[in-house]
Structures are given as C-alpha cells and as structure tokens.
Amino acid sequence: MKRNLPLIFAFICGIVVVASDFIPHRPFNLMIDTLQNWFMIIVGFAILLGQISLFQSNIYKIQHKVSGWYYYLAGLISFVIMLVLGLLWGTQEYQGLLGHGLAVQAWLGSKPFDYLFDNAYLPLSATMFSLLAFFVASAAYRAFIIRSFESNLLMITAIIVILGRTSFGGMLTSWVPESYSFWHLPNLSDFIMEYPNTAAQRAIMISAALGIIGSSLRIILGIERSYLGSDK
C-alpha cells in the first residue's frame, strides 16, 4: 500500500490530465479544473514544508553551535520578522490578518512587509546579482584562454551581441557604407539573434520537449518511481 497506491494515484492523475486535453467535455473538463485547484493547494503546502525544513536546519545549527551559528540566527530572525509582518499587515496587494494597518503605514510610509522588501530584500538581491558582473568577467577571461574554436565562437558572438545592443556598437560601425549595412554591429547582432540563436534555441526546446515527454510517460506508467524515495 505504501508504494503501489501512490503509483496508482500518479497514473490516474496523469491519465485524467492527458485525456482531458483530448476530451474537452464533462466530466473531464471538471476533473482537470478540480485537479489543478488541488494541485495549487498541495503546492502551497509543499512550499510551507520547504520553509519548515529551512527553519529546522537553522535551529539545528544554532542548537549545536556549528561554526558561524550566529549568522544562521540572524537569518532565522529576519525570516520570522518578515513572515510575521507580512502575515499581520499583508503586502501591497493583499490585506493581512490585522487588515491594512493604516496607522502603521502612516508611521512607516508603507506596509511593514513592503518597507523591509524595499529597503532590505531589494538592495540585497540586486547587489547579490550585480556581484556576478565581476565573476562573469573572470569567466569570460577563462573562456578566452582556452583558445578552442568553440570557445572563440562563443566569445565573439557575446562581444557582437553586447556591442550590437549598445549605442557604442552602433557608433563603432557608423562609418560602414549603407550598401554594407549588414555589417553594422546592431544589424549583425539582430541577425545572430534572429537566425543562428533561434535555431539553437529551437533545437534545445525540441530536444528538451522530447525528454520531458519521455520522462512524463515513465512517471505516469509507474516506470520512474524515484520520487517515492526508499523504504528505509
């Protein structure tokens, strides 16, 4: 029961969803709506499970005083503060459990959740990702020193696309006569994006779709069952 019943559930759900696409009538259209609604609710609980797991992992590190435990404590405190403020007074779009908190908004200038979002979350995420600009430059240097045909192709394309998408690229090739306008960096960049890039993206999409269809079939038919975990 512990293994076979979930496999039967997966089979029925998968078959109902696939069948409903080919039979858009009752009861299949109702069943797919119901299943999708249930799916959303279960996904909500799955996200909650992930956060509980993160919480537990941090608590464990703090309790056992692992190296740098105070950083995890800071993470935990920030998690609790953001969560409580969000649930109590809601977000810009949603009303919280205590309403919109107009008095708090008048004091802070915005809802507490949005205040933390604008002044802590946003700067942190933007700076964290902008940091990658420096590491991307180092990656580019490493790609250059490999000196294979493929790595050169990658770097030359990257340079053409970067220059072609900025006004500097247009300025660099502005002297090229109109009859050779194809060689203007913005036009060359457009050509690369429109044809060779689209071709490769299509190849990736088609191949990935074939892979996804194959693995979906394996899941629905119960051949792929690693998601059930072990019996230990």
């Binding site: 998968g14 969803v17 998601y227």
Partner: peptide, 16 residues
C-alpha cells in the same frame, strides 16, 4: 508519498 504522487502525476500529465 500520496500528495507527492498526485503532484508528480498531475504535473507529468500537464507537461506532457
């Protein structure tokens, strides 16, 4: 395993 099976089965059908 039961909710996971329902989630995986439904998303496999949708993705396919």
């Amino acid at each position: 395993r039961f909710p996971i099976a329902i989630m995986i089965g439904t998303s496999a059908g949708i993705n396919m």
